[in-house]
Write a protein that binds this DNA or RNA. Structure first.
Lengths: 166, 166
DNA sequence: CAGGGATATTTGCAAATGCATTTAAATCTG
DNA sequence: CAGATTTAAATGCATTTGCAAATATCCCTG
């Protein structure tokens, strides 16, 4: 159960070859660490979400809608990182439960804007302490300065990989 | 489409109330940023993975197995952040495609150890440049020092939220 | 060393997801 | 301004996923 030694580099390859994952080491490859941390974070919320009848996209939609008022469905799908079709169905459920409502955009009748209801806000407020707690656990033993620097780097990274203008 | 102003704090609540998500701001809440960045990273690999007949857990299994030799299935599921049942089925497929093979643990016949084959290693080597590229894009314009500090914080975070001893 | 509980993995099944397509409306172009 | 093209959202369908239960094996205790 230990990292295997890096394989010998063939003689016919230049020195500046792309390093292999084994050479970097799993725990120095940022996407691996981030996926694993977020997997735990999301799993730690799943029980609480299930009790409220929420899935991950439904919860994320409520979270974003508690902050951003009346986005288009396509915009919302960017924020919550889900396919538009997934979001469309999640919104069906949230609307049926009275947690959001949809309104056709006044200026473009193809488009739909989404709003959180008071009930939706209340549901999110129930979940929020657990989310804050999960975040606090992640940052245990990390100074405010280090956390600020970390979040600053995340913001740069988001700007780098952003595909949409949102 | 702008962050709404923080709602008034009710008079009957103490000052030290848990700050709301709207007060922190979406782009200062680390889990939101990390989910969004990883969503893009994973999406950016999906096309290439699909061409190789891989799903996310299959790809992650190959990635981990290229570095760690012969883990138990349950251990592997921790690394790749998936349910054992999901991994079990992903391994069925990878084995059918000849990319891994499973062997009953000599000392415990309940347990199964997983090994990558040469073909599996070759498949992962095809994908790895795209993964390295996606990582490089994430860190564009970020200095080596900043990246090292960032990865260091990630490692602390993983230790914090780790549920298993792996 | 037998029996109860724990552990490793697989399987059944319902729900969720992603891709491709459809529907509807707006915009561009000649 | 008609027809082609683009854009927003919803829907059909096959696949994937997660939870719970089943199966097989191991370990612990009396």
């Amino acid at each position: 159960m230990t990292d295997r030694p890096p394989p010998d580099r063939p003689h016919d390859r230049p020195i500046a070859t792309l390093p292999r994952l084994g050479e970097i080491g799993l725990t120095n490859y940022a996407p691996y660490l981030m996926n694993r941390i977020m997997g735990r974070y999301n799993a730690s919320l799943r029980t609480e979400m299930a009790e409220l009848g929420l899935t991950t996209p439904k919860m994320r939609a409520l979270a974003v809608l508690s902050v951003i008022d009346g986005p288009l469905i396509r915009e919302l799908s960017v924020y919550i990182v889900a396919e538009q079709s997934t979001l469309s169905r999640a919104l069906d459920q949230l609307a049926a439960e009275g947690l959001i409502h949809r309104e056709t955009d006044p200026g473009d009748s193809r488009a739909t804007r989404v709003f959180i209801t008071d009930a939706g806000r209340a549901t999110f407020e129930t979940l929020w302490p657990r989310m804050a707690e999960a975040q606090a656990r992640m940052f245990r033993g990390i100074t405010d300065d280090e956390r600020r620097a970390f979040v600053g780097t995340l913001q740069k990274m988001l700007a780098n990989i952003r595909k949409h203008e949102i």
